[in-house]
């Protein structure tokens, strides 16, 4: 068997890897955005709660959290390991995305909000129309980094038995006794996924850049 055979066997796990990333990233984004807004504008109690959430979530290895969350999620609702694992990855990512968005929001000068309020926009309108469009642009480079991390971390759900890339590499490695080829094939596929994703996000970043004179 050559590398090509390994690649084609393992590549069939790509759908799970992509699927998990496509669930985890948006879920993490929605939660992260919500948590960042609560942290900044939610009042003292919610703000403290979000700070604790972020500190705890970012202080535990993702694989440990994945097991803990997997048993919480699959214990409360009946979900497949794939779905429960993907949602758990999204929850883990939400803490990192919260920090990315919080930092980006704080980069937008307070004057922007003041100017928005001065023409009569409400706080909610000012955040939606003025703050977020600018903050999300600032967040995009760091978010692209987080997207790469989530794609790679999706390999962790192999531990739940989901037949994604790493799991299939493990299987074929065991059956052929050729771990180098098996894991190299997995590495190539992961790299390709991350490379394409960061390239696409880089293009988005250029497209959204606000024109300015040098």
């Amino acid at each position: 068997m050559d590398l090509g055979n390994f690649l084609s066997y393992i590549a069939s796990g790509t759908l799970y890897t992509l699927g998990a990333s496509l669930i985890a990233l948006p879920a993490g984004l929605i939660l992260g955005l919500l948590f960042a807004l609560l942290y900044l504008y939610g009042g003292k109690v919610l703000s403290n709660l979000m700070a604790v959430y972020s500190t705890v979530m970012r202080g535990i290895p993702p694989i440990v959290l994945l097991f803990v969350l997997y048993f919480v999620v699959s214990g409360s609702v009946n979900l497949s390991p794939f779905l429960a694992g993907s949602i758990s990855l999204g929850i883990i990512s939400s803490a990192y995305q919260m920090e990315i968005i919080r930092g980006a929001i704080q980069c937008v000068s307070g004057g922007q909000l003041m100017a928005a309020r001065a023409i009569g926009l409400s706080q909610t309108q000012a955040v939606r129309e003025i703050l977020l469009p600018q903050a999300l642009r600032i967040a995009l480079p760091s978010w692209s980094n987080e997207a790469a991390i989530v794609i790679k971390d999706s390999s962790l759900i192999y531990a739940l038995g989901v037949p994604e890339i790493l799991r299939r590499a493990q299987l074929i490695s065991a059956s052929t006794q050729q771990p180098f080829l098996a894991y190299s094939a997995a590495a190539i596929i992961y790299f390709a996924l991350v490379f394409i994703t960061t390239r696409l996000l880089g293009r988005l970043e250029q497209k959204l850049a606000i024109p300015a004179n040098p």
């Binding site: 004057g111 922007q112 100017a115 001065a118 642009r137």
Partner: peptide, 13 residues
């Protein structure tokens, strides 16, 4: 009430 600021504060985006 209209307000004009020292540092303009146009919406950058």
């Amino acid at each position: 009430i209209g307000m004009v600021f020292q540092n303009f504060l146009l919406f950058n985006h």
